[in-house]
Simulated scan of single mutants.
Amino acid sequence: MNEAVIVEAVRTPFGRRGGWWADTRPDSLLAQTVQGLLARAGLPGEKVEDLIAGCVSQAGEQGANIGRLAAMLAGLPESVPGVALNRMCGSSQQAVHFGAQAIAAGDMRYVVAGGVESMSRVPMFLDVTLGQGEFRGFEGLNPALLERYPLIHQIESAERIAERWQLSQAEMDEWARESHARAWSAAQAGLHAELLPGPREDAGRDEGIREKTDPARMAAMAPALRPPGQGGVTAANASQLADG
């Protein structure tokens, strides 16, 4: 069995929804990242044997196999195939696993693996109907599946986890503040050597990182999905909507 190694790893700065990358198509964004990766690695495009792209919302500008489209937009030879996969929040990581497995098995030698998501241009759940009203779930899914599993939105999942482990909004807010503080310190220290140039001169960090957070403002925010007073997951302590 061959040993699979990561030769080079890069990423764009993550932009907030409606922010830095809002005017950039996701297939173009992925293509630019592939170009930056190959340039850093010093790898000719003709040596790439597959481009594996993780992408959750495969619809609109992220549809039609964004992996293959990005390979062509990046200027790779037409002989280089591409594929898109969806393992929800683990999609990009799964892409790396698939690439490593192909190399370990001896099928390939050089694989580009990663992912892309533009939450500005391709809204969440564009590929499935989300029920309206309180926690009605995903109406576009097979009714037989919904009869077996009461599938819910991930924010409601987070609320139930918080209830199970008795996590208050104040505790979640504190973790969010600490996360921003650590991320800001890391960015200021220049620890993100994997970043490619961003759309602006000051984009040497992720756009969503906040230098300062306001505890009072965070505490006053209403729950993201639940009625006021019945939940603790808010826009301030939940994962951000981002492009990258």
Rank of each mutant, 00 (worst) to 15 (best):
A64Y: 13
F135K: 14
L73V: 13
Y110P: 02
A187S: 10
L30R: 12
V83H: 09
M72L: 15
T24R: 13
Q240P: 04
P223N: 06
E61P: 05
A144C: 01
A220Y: 08
T234A: 08
G229R: 13
G67S: 10
R17D: 02
I6M: 12
S239G: 12
R40P: 03
P228F: 13
G232K: 04
D107V: 05
E49Q: 14
G208T: 12
L73K: 15
D243V: 06
L191N: 07
M172N: 05
P215T: 06
E61Q: 13
E49W: 06
I103G: 00
I6P: 00
F138A: 03
D206W: 12
A39H: 13
E134V: 08
S118G: 05
R177P: 00
A183K: 07
A100K: 09
P227V: 02
S185V: 13
R210F: 09
A193K: 14
L191T: 10
V111D: 00
F98C: 01
N86I: 02
G63I: 08
G60S: 00
P223Q: 08
A224S: 06
F125G: 00
L146G: 01
A220C: 07
A144K: 13
A235Q: 09
G140C: 02
T129M: 11
F138Y: 15
G90F: 03
F125K: 09
G244W: 04
G208W: 12
G198T: 00
Q35P: 04
Q35F: 09
M72I: 13
A41D: 09
E117A: 09
G106I: 05
L167Q: 10
Q166L: 12
A9K: 07
A203W: 09
D173L: 12
A41P: 08
A53K: 04
Q132T: 12
G115V: 05
K47R: 15
G15I: 03
E201L: 14
V116I: 14
G229Q: 08
Q240V: 14
A170F: 15
A242C: 13
D50S: 01
R25Q: 15
P13A: 00
P13Y: 06
I152P: 04
G36H: 05
V48T: 00
A216D: 10
R16N: 08
R68T: 05
D50L: 04
W184M: 07
T33A: 15
H192P: 04
I66T: 02
R160W: 14
G106N: 03
G137D: 00
A224H: 01
